[in-house]
């Protein structure tokens, strides 16, 4: 008896969950569908959209717009670049804080976190003027630096929580067995730290790829990544639904795939360990 009730419950829950999940995902599904339509078909009724022919011409049209690949590359460069630089600075810092904790380690961590709470608009004017005076406006260098800095607290914090989980006894055991500091780091710590570093990198690439305050305010035609490029469709080009959809699908697809792999890290990284 109890069994049948619970299996009926499961069926109801399954149907409800699938239905709601479909609704949440629908806007993304819809632009994928529209991206394979002609411009004429894409603005038709939903019924017309679903029953009309399929084509990839919107994708070729977007690719041919000479600047799309450039903006895509800009996104790749700034998100990978800022992640790489961030790790370069954060790994030693997180490492030291996790393995050689001092009296002030906690204060430093909390202070780093507090920089993340600063509303970007509060420092927009000075950053804009400094960038203007130093010729950094609309450059990949400037943007990479800014993205590295805004995400640095999250990187340090995430790495710290991962490194903290590496048991110190293992180090002692290795030392007892006569391992030198170099081989200790190389053969004992590094293999244990790599998964944490990889997860951190993944989340940071996603955050940098989607960042849409600094990328919109500090770039123009030259260094604009996809966030800013897509924003240029806001009028009147946005009415070319098929092309807008194709450009959007290409812009979000890589990050969507990465995001699906990083659900756990997302919770850890964005809640600063407050929810596990």
């Amino acid at each position: 008896m109890a069994r049948t009730i619970s299996s009926r419950q499961t069926t109801v829950a399954t149907i409800a969950a699938w239905f709601l999940a479909f609704l949440m995902f629908f806007p993304i599904l819809w632009i994928v569908i529209l991206s394979f339509k002609t411009e004429g078909d894409a603005i038709g009724t939903p019924f017309h959209v679903l029953t009309s022919g399929w084509t990839t011409e919107a994708y070729s049209a977007v690719q041919e717009r000479s600047d799309y690949p450039k903006h895509f590359m800009n996104s790749v460069i700034i998100s990978l670049g800022s992640t790489f630089l961030g790790l370069l600075i954060a790994v030693p810092a997180a490492w030291a804080m996790a393995f050689v904790p001092g009296k002030r380690t906690k204060d430093v961590l909390m202070w780093m976190l507090s920089t993340k709470m600063l509303p970007p608009v509060g420092v927009l004017v000075p950053i804009y003027l400094i960038f203007r005076d130093w010729g950094l406006l609309d450059t990949l260098t400037g943007l990479t630096m800014v993205l590295m800095l805004i995400n640095l607290p999250i990187i340090v914090w995430m790495l710290y929580t991962y490194f903290k989980e590496i048991p110190g006894e293992i180090l002692e055991a290795a030392r007892m067995d006569g391992a030198s500091l170099k081989s200790e780091i190389l053969y004992v710590l590094t293999p244990m730290a790599v998964p944490g570093i990889a997860s951190t990198a993944l989340l940071n690439i996603i955050l940098a790829w989607n960042e849409a305050f600094w990328t919109l305010n500090l770039t123009a035609a030259k260094a604009a990544p996809l966030t800013a490029f897509i924003a240029s469709y806001s009028s009147p080009e946005g009415l070319f639904y098929a092309k807008l959809s194709a450009a959007s699908v290409m812009a979000i697809a890589p990050i969507l795939v990465m995001g699906w792999f990083s659900q756990k890290q997302l919770v850890r990284g964005l809640t600063f360990g407050a929810v596990k």
Binding site: A21, M24, P27, I28, N210, L226, I230, I252, L256, G259
Partner: peptide
């Protein structure tokens, strides 16, 4: 499917 919208860039 439920989580997907979070990874869509704000401008898109």
């Amino acid at each position: 499917l439920v989580i997907a919208p979070f990874f869509v860039m704000p401008t898109v």
